Simulated scan of single mutants.
Amino acid sequence: MPINKNALIRYRALDRCLKNTTRKYSAKDLLREVERILESEGFEKGIVKSQLHADMQYMQDFWKAPILAEKDSLDRRITLYRYSDPLFSIENQPISEVESKVIKEALSVLSRFKGMPQFEWINEIVPAIQDKLGFIAQDREVISFESNWDYEGLRNITPIFNAITNHRVLKITYQDFRADEPYSIFFHPYYLKQYNSRWFAFGLNEASSNSYWNLALDRIQDIVETQDEYQYNEIDWEEYFDDIIGVTRRIEDELEEVRLWFPPEQAPYIKTKPLHRTQKCKEDATGLEVSIKVVLNFELERTILSFGSSMKVLAPDKLKNQIKSKLQLSLSRYED
Score class of each variant (00 low, 15 high):
residue 216 A to F: 02
residue 177 F to E: 15
residue 113 F to Y: 15
residue 167 H to W: 06
residue 135 F to P: 06
residue 156 N to I: 00
residue 216 A to G: 13
residue 151 Y to P: 02
residue 237 W to F: 14
residue 216 A to S: 15
residue 130 Q to T: 07
residue 185 I to F: 03
residue 147 S to T: 05
residue 127 P to Q: 09
residue 205 N to I: 04
residue 204 L to W: 08
residue 193 K to H: 13
residue 210 N to K: 07
residue 192 L to Y: 06
residue 116 M to P: 02
residue 160 I to M: 13
residue 166 N to M: 05
residue 153 G to D: 10
residue 228 D to W: 02
residue 182 P to W: 11
residue 137 A to H: 11
residue 132 K to E: 13
residue 179 A to M: 06
residue 238 E to G: 00
residue 140 R to S: 12
residue 120 E to I: 01
residue 121 W to K: 10
residue 169 V to T: 10
residue 246 G to H: 09
residue 229 E to G: 01
residue 175 Q to F: 02
residue 156 N to M: 04
residue 123 N to T: 08
residue 214 N to E: 14
residue 231 Q to F: 01
residue 184 S to D: 14
residue 225 E to G: 03
residue 128 A to F: 03
residue 156 N to Q: 11
residue 222 D to R: 14
residue 125 I to M: 14
residue 237 W to G: 04
residue 156 N to V: 00
residue 241 F to D: 07
residue 225 E to S: 07
residue 149 W to G: 02
residue 178 R to D: 12
residue 135 F to M: 11
residue 140 R to N: 10
residue 245 I to E: 07
residue 162 N to D: 15
residue 237 W to P: 02
residue 124 E to F: 03
residue 205 N to L: 07
residue 215 L to T: 02
residue 114 K to H: 09
residue 168 R to T: 09
residue 211 S to N: 11
residue 152 E to V: 01
residue 192 L to A: 05
residue 111 S to L: 01
residue 195 Y to A: 03
residue 238 E to T: 00
residue 111 S to A: 09
residue 181 E to R: 12
residue 178 R to T: 12
residue 197 S to W: 03
residue 250 R to K: 13
residue 190 Y to C: 06
residue 178 R to Y: 13
residue 160 I to S: 10
residue 191 Y to W: 14
residue 119 F to E: 08
residue 212 Y to P: 00
residue 160 I to Q: 09
residue 139 D to P: 00
residue 114 K to M: 08
residue 240 Y to W: 13
residue 224 V to K: 13
residue 227 Q to W: 03
residue 177 F to H: 14
residue 229 E to N: 09
residue 254 E to R: 14
residue 147 S to M: 04
residue 236 D to G: 03
residue 238 E to S: 02
residue 203 G to K: 05
residue 111 S to V: 01
residue 121 W to R: 10
residue 147 S to I: 00
residue 247 V to C: 10
residue 192 L to P: 02
residue 199 W to N: 04
residue 250 R to H: 14
residue 210 N to Q: 08
residue 166 N to G: 05
residue 228 D to N: 10
residue 133 L to P: 06
residue 159 P to D: 11
residue 218 D to A: 02
residue 181 E to Y: 11
residue 117 P to W: 10
residue 205 N to M: 09
residue 158 T to V: 03
residue 193 K to N: 10
residue 172 I to V: 15
residue 115 G to A: 04
residue 183 Y to P: 01
residue 133 L to F: 15
residue 233 N to L: 01
residue 198 R to D: 05
residue 224 V to H: 10
residue 184 S to Q: 15
residue 141 E to P: 00
residue 170 L to W: 07
residue 182 P to S: 09
residue 144 S to L: 06
residue 219 R to S: 07
residue 181 E to L: 04
